[in-house]
Design a binder for these strands. Sequence first.
DNA 1: GCGGATATC
Length: 754
Amino acid sequence: MESAEYISLSSDDDPLAAFIHRRVTAAQVQHAMDGINNPFFNRKLSQQYKKILLARRQLPVYAQMHEFYELFKRNQIIVMVGETGSGKTTQIPQFVCFADLPHKKGKMVACTQPRRVATMSVARRVADEMDVSLGKQVGYSIRFEDMTQPGTTFLKYMTDGMLLREAMTDPELSRYSTIILDEVHERTLATDILMGLLKNLSRRRRDLKIIIMSATLDALKFQKYFSTGEGAQGSLAPLLKVPGRTHPVEVFYTKEAELDYVEAGLRAVLMIHRAEPPGDILLFLTGEEEIEGACKKLKEEVDFLLNADPRSIGPLACIPLYSTLSPPQQQKIFDPPPPPSRGGPPGRKVIVSTNVAETSLTIDGIVYVIDPGYSKQKVYNPRIRVESLLVSPISKASAQQRAGRAGRTRPGKCFRLYTEDVFMNDLEEQTHPEVLRSNLANTVLELAKLGVRDLVRFDYVDAPAPETIMRALELLHYLGALDNQSNLTPLGKKMSQFPLDPQMAKTLIVSAEFKCSEEILTIVSMLSVPPVWVRPVTARGPADAAKARLDIPDGDHLSLLNVYDRFLEHIEEKTWAWTNFVSARSLYQARNVRTQLKAIMDRLKIPLVSTSSEHDRNDNIRKALISGYFMQVAHRDKGGGYLTMKDNQLVALHPSCGLDGTPDWVIFNEFVLTTQPYIRTVSAIEPEWLFKHAPSYFDLSTFPNGATKNALEIVEEQFKIKEEAEPKEQKKKRNRKKPQKKAAGDPQKVETQD
DNA sequence: GCGGATATC
């Protein structure tokens, strides 16, 4: 690239001079690609470009360039299906650039991806293919990293969440001439919401073209969703279908159902290792603990067999893979398989992985896939307002995706540990979209900011349960983000600026009034990153001891603040995080988030304040938390457990909780349902604070009768007496000083059915 | 006794 010489082009030399906006032909484009000069950039094309172009020509999507341009010319919205290896993600956006000529029109072409890593790597690849440097004509935009140059970048890869955020400031998405949504079959929350917005926007912006790209064959659903006219057959959005290019994978089923899928998976690994030709194995399990346990068992089994007879079996490297592993640990999946023991059978590598290996990470060299048919999936129960992770059967689409992992480099085999009958008749076609499995409080706030008036009747691809939306609206009303007409309040507008859950956003916004915005900013940042506490299977004792040293007795929120501050104190010491069993990666990430949130606070003129007394500080923090998390309070039950407010659900403190003893009243960040109902990240509170800082929620006439209500009634009585005793003058003064405080802490009520 | 995966101005 360095040796490429600059040339001066007169308009006659512009390879795209004869191109008519959105009227180009495949022949014209082919010709421009084959030229001497870069069609988009005043420079000669490099040798590397030509070499890559030869490879690009082999991609299945290339053979359909003509068909693509015909469809693109005639339609505003196109649905495209292309399996792995079709080249759609890298080629289609380039095709669009030749038609849209965004560099001449002052527009951009956007292509969204569900994941950051994929966004970066595909942008890099396409920059190479177009013979430009990344971040110039071709760039990407992900959180914390904007690799674009305004005025120069005309092809932008971005995460779906990023485009959704952009839509909040520019609902017309006016910078874009074409928007391509990729990997739509994954049905992430952001993709689903974007589909709704774009469908709507397509009616207002007739010049905006939209391409929906999906890997699986559920295209008809999207064709129907984006159909023009009123549901007549002829009005379906047109479909472009591109074949994939992978190697064949032979699929095997069990004859009978397996009782223990972990055990069956391990047997399958050993069976392959003994009987099948060389090639790596990928075994899908559901979680960290299961995976570590399986790896341990597998090693023991192989060691046992090798001890008995070293010639009976080759060495087997067992590598665990899940997202919370550090990058160097994840790198191990790319190590070569172990060499054969002296004169014995060849060695083999087996990767035991969660779903990361199904979508996010591709591992070359896998020849055998073992699919027990399960994964952990998020489930939301709006009735009890709990998101939980449940081991559930995967969908057919998922099973096919898993099988495909065996055929990336050569023909492979997939062993499904369930019967063909189960596959055909029991498995769902597609995994349920995230929008049906999530708490939508955040999404509803975003939609309100986007100007969607009727959230229940929003045109979802799949509409969530009305109760889920009601729960979200209820929370937002209580928080004061929405008024009685479900309009965004000024507070709600501020909240929507933060990339945070509504409770957290509210806490952060009001924290300045509690003189602890410095601290809440840190706590909120820590709650926005993966867990900081590291607890390796081999060092649980030392890890727990280290955590105990960092814990603050009053609550886990304060402990998070403490860890962050101690980390910054020792940031020069490279081993501090390691010796204290905390994740440096999470802490750096928290620092990043903190910087970003601080910038938003500055913009909203929310001051960063603190107080010098540690006692006051710890109280202030927990009072501020109540103004956001008043619905997440629990009271200690006679049996030793806790009962949640209003719902009266029996929960236990999560084992990771660092509270000193079992305080009567606690506030918690999350309710999780794993082996039993737990509350996690818990702090002790004084019950009078509830009446003081969330008075409208703690209107006891709305509480169901029971032990919790009785306990609250006693507290309320004492609170009233105390309030009465406070001199009237002083009270007035306080109210006058902070008039906004009441508005923030005393939200609107909403009609709900409990 | 203890976390699937992903994302965010």
